[in-house]
Amino acid sequence: MLSALTTPEIAESYRILAETDGPIPLKEADKRLGADGSVARLLALGLAHVLPHDPPVLAATAPVPAVEAALAQKQHELNAQYDVMVRARREAVQIRQLADQQGQEASSHRLARVLTDSDDIAALSNTIGTAAKEEHLTLETFRYDLPLTESSAQPPTAASIARGVRHRSIYETTFLSDPVGAVIIESCAAAGEEIRVLPQLPMKMKITDSSQALVALTPTGSSAALHLTSPVAVDALRHYFELLWRDARPLGLRPSPTTGERERQRHEIAALMRQGLKDEAVARRLGLTPRTVRRRISEFMQELSAETRFAAGAEAQRRGWFEDPDD
């Protein structure tokens, strides 16, 4: 309990003091309690008190009053933090109102603006979904001005997921066959993003809470983009996204193969493993995600009653999986 209300170090110092046979000399207390400053921390929290002996000694507060004192201090700290949060929320509202007012004064009738500065576009692209309250939608084509890197990934933040924001993205299937693209998709999916894929997308686009959208005006979107805050326009783009989402294939899923196709795919995975390819390389070769490959491997290891991949390979060899199916 004291560890939760204070810190593990303070709780340990109190335990040592409380279990000591009688008070301990004040001068020796820090050393015996394990760290410099232990006495000061215990006294400040009311977990110990000094008895006016000659020389003075340190005694532990009884357990019940000690817990009550620590609880009172924690309540005080939480109240202070709550006050900070209330002030911060109030000031954030004021800042938002001021920004909205300034935006209206700058252009009271403008519901769309064209961005041509690459830094402005990149900044808005990175932050448009950070304050989402309900949902954030993305269309991501495989078109970039610079080589794609893993740092290009923009997975949802843990705070956004914790707030219950739903993140949905549609990627072009080229991502799955590209080593870096596959890593980007995997990292975004692991962060909580719902992902589907289509063979081709017409443009890059991001939509947040039906309130704003960022639409690329060039293939890569880095040199020109349209920022929309018109409710009518944003709603139309949301409707378009939903149509694409309905037709897109969920990540990791493929049309149900026939028995023969399933057998060939399983044999292909086993054969590539036998050649020494890693899961990621197998995935790229077969147009699957690494996660799907690992799941398929687990499935046929179970089917072959193999505890290791080496054992699975040996059993697959025994069953003739590596023979040419056309022979």
Results as ranks from 00 to 15, higher is better:
1 M>L: 12
3 S>Y: 06
3 S>A: 13
4 A>N: 13
12 E>I: 08
14 Y>P: 03
32 R>Y: 04
36 D>H: 10
44 A>P: 05
53 H>S: 04
57 V>F: 06
58 L>F: 03
61 T>V: 09
72 A>N: 06
73 Q>C: 09
75 Q>D: 13
76 H>P: 02
78 L>P: 07
82 Y>P: 03
82 Y>G: 05
83 D>Y: 14
88 A>P: 00
98 L>N: 12
99 A>T: 15
101 Q>K: 10
101 Q>I: 10
112 A>P: 01
116 T>M: 09
118 S>P: 15
121 I>E: 00
124 L>M: 08
125 S>N: 15
130 T>I: 15
133 K>P: 01
144 Y>P: 06
145 D>V: 05
148 L>N: 02
149 T>D: 05
162 A>L: 07
165 V>P: 01
168 R>E: 09
175 F>T: 00
178 D>P: 01
185 I>W: 00
187 S>E: 12
188 C>K: 00
195 I>G: 00
198 L>S: 08
199 P>F: 06
204 K>E: 05
210 S>Y: 07
213 A>L: 03
213 A>C: 11
214 L>G: 05
217 L>H: 06
220 T>P: 15
222 S>K: 00
228 L>H: 01
233 A>Q: 12
235 D>H: 14
235 D>V: 04
239 H>M: 11
241 F>C: 03
243 L>M: 10
248 A>R: 03
249 R>S: 08
250 P>H: 07
256 S>P: 02
257 P>I: 11
263 E>N: 08
263 E>K: 13
265 Q>N: 12
282 V>Y: 01
283 A>Y: 01
287 G>Y: 05
296 R>V: 02
303 E>N: 03
304 L>R: 04
305 S>F: 10
308 T>P: 09
308 T>M: 08
308 T>I: 03
312 A>F: 11
316 A>R: 01
321 W>R: 04
322 F>M: 14
322 F>E: 13
324 D>F: 09
327 D>F: 09
